[in-house]
Design a protein around this nucleic acid. Structure first.
Lengths: 212, 212, 212, 212
DNA sequence: GGATAAACGAGACGGTACGTCCCGTCTTGAG
DNA sequence: CTCAAGACGGGACGTACCGTCTCGTTTATCC
């Protein structure tokens, strides 16, 4: 394949017995393009194949459903989150959640939150996907674990705090908002963290909020 | 409406130019049957029509998508939740959430939680459904509003607490658990309420929990 | 792809699967079976697909309407007509029309006449079918052209006779009878040819006939 | 509705409302309108009812299929044909066929030929319609019978000519042209009559004609 | 004048078939 | 051996009409 001018899409050729990385990249890019153009629900394997100039059989060989393609995109995107400063629990959580919610919102160019929630939904009827999703989640939340452990070491949290349970508690509100399509603004994130740290009785819930 | 009880397979006759309540009931029952037999994802409008002995056009006349049928079932099921005792905020919340989570789990015969989470998911790409779902949610959470308001009156919550925000905070963990397919047991509900009331720093997160 | 100077623009490096002849045969056979079992009007594309164990999309890929399937069957059936003897015009016409009417009646196992008349009817509102039907008719009547030309050469017809018009004249009575569901017996065919050759004033119309 | 033997209630003679002539007229007019707007094939009972502002049940009460409505329209239209002059067979036939073909073409405002040929087609699978159509045809061709009989009386046709057969012969070419959507112009009608009277060997087929 | 009953408009009903779309698999020929 | 292309059997989609029915109203006779 020499230089010829293919203005839109460069034709990829088969290389024989090896998996084509170019094809994988083309598929992920095609998925992202379609996500932007028609929305997750309207994406079909057929359209992804056509957009990526890939054969349908090739798609199915590497990804059993479109949710798995979405998960591949999520896995690629998660590296964008930077490590925390480690000063105070409140600051660390605000920083961590701000980055994650920014990623969800699409600050990195891809609305990862949309992919995440659809993966959750499809996992309800696909145990294999549920397992893959859990693995992804466990890996992604390693940093949250570090944050909480550091806070416990600094005495900001009682020793013996159940970290797994605390992680759930911290993530439950953001994920709830993701699921109800109301991702919070930066100020709302701060208040959310205050509520999480102090609980209902602390009084931080007195700020006005949008109605549900 | 006199006595006669023909409980099964009553032949519905064509009713003419007004909406047939018998058909509506047959459709909802058929949906519930199929939900039990094949699961939400595998339900098709075609199968619902067949199971209900109804025409597809009749289905589409009253429910634009299967999620709307699910929402009808949810609305019918919500009356099962009884009013709270009004003694203490903690008890009221535990009671309220226990009832709601029991309803979700299927204690009333129908796994309402499955319907709810799929409605959330389909609302992501269906604004009309999103609105209907929000109306349903607002109505269902009236009682939660009453609980919080009573607690505020009793002095258990700071005066001026943003109730809409507080409702979100209370519901976020249960809904997060619904979305991740891990509905809590009664004891877990109590601890969940303690965390919600006290926040992370209160120390109630020290109990062990399942890993995510 | 090395040689870039391909004058005929042969950039197709992948061709895809080819049309299945087995499926085409199965569809035509299914159509014939249903024609026999339920009649033309009651045939549906759905039933043809099911009978042929083919997908509906496959049917629509190759035949836009059921009339096109009928036309395919007609085209396959027409090869049954043998060439004429070439002795006298009257004998040739009787032979030709007898064969054609026999084909129409179903002597070859398939009631081609039923297919033909329905194709005519559907061509009234389908220009594309009308064109295909005309092409078929032109090809089928080649032999009639030969018969008339031979008769002209033998002096049985005036030189300069408009053959296209003569063909119409010869075929008009048989087709009229086909359209009114009264295909003639062999004896009636002979008298029909006599009328056609001699016209009303020749007196051959004096034989009794069925009422219309 | 006269006295029938009903043992219980002898004289219950309330007759209720009568058939509405306004409705019948509205239906026929609606059918003609739709014929002009969308063509015969696309006309549905539903659309006729709506266009006529009539209930579907009313339509079905008086006309079992749309072909029967078409037949009603044909019957109303046929009165337009005037009686023949009775001078010569050729002139009478030309006059008669010209009027009929003009009616078919739509000179009276309604393309009767379109209705006629669709009635023929639907009669292939509707014996009741076939019978009604034959009655209509018999009545309409009374005048053709008169023409032939007068010609026989004048000696233009051999005595003993089978009139029913002769009618078929005369009508076969016009109807064939109607069925192939090629209604003839006035000049073509004259040549058609000449062919019919003289037959193929008379030589009148030497004029050029459109190809089939 | 009141009762009665047929016919009416409107349109919901249980159905069937439509033609389209996509699924996941299989076939073909190129590289 | 893998690839792009795309035909295949299958099945659900949402729509359009079918012919039947019920609803409540409007006639038109008859008592």
């Amino acid at each position: 394949m020499t230089a010829q001018v293919t203005p839109q899409q460069e034709t990829r050729t088969s290389v024989g017995a090896r998996r084509s990385e170019a094809t994988e990249a083309a598929v992920l890019e095609a998925f992202a393009t379609l996500l932007d153009e028609v929305g997750y629900a309207a994406i079909t394997m057929e359209a992804v194949a056509k957009q990526a100039r890939a054969g349908k059989a090739t798609l199915y060989r590497w990804w059993p459903t479109k949710a798995h393609i979405a998960l591949s995109l999520i896995s690629k995107a998660k590296v964008e989150i930077a490590p925390p400063a480690g000063v105070s629990l409140r600051d660390d959580l605000i920083d961590y959640l701000s980055r994650m919610i920014g990623l969800w919102r699409g600050d990195a160019g891809l609305p990862v939150g949309v992919l995440v929630r659809h993966c959750y939904a499809e996992a309800w009827s696909d145990p294999e996907l549920a397992e893959a999703l859990q693995a992804e989640r466990r890996e992604r939340w390693t940093m949250l674990n570090d944050i909480l452990q550091a806070a416990m070491a600094r005495g900001e949290l009682p020793t013996g705090t159940d970290l797994a349970r605390a992680k759930d508690f911290v993530m439950s509100w953001p994920i709830y908002l993701l699921m109800t399509d109301r991702l919070p603004s930066p100020e709302e994130i701060a208040r959310m963290v205050d509520d999480t740290l102090g609980g209902l009785r602390s009084g931080s819930s007195r700020h006005p909020s949008r109605d549900t």
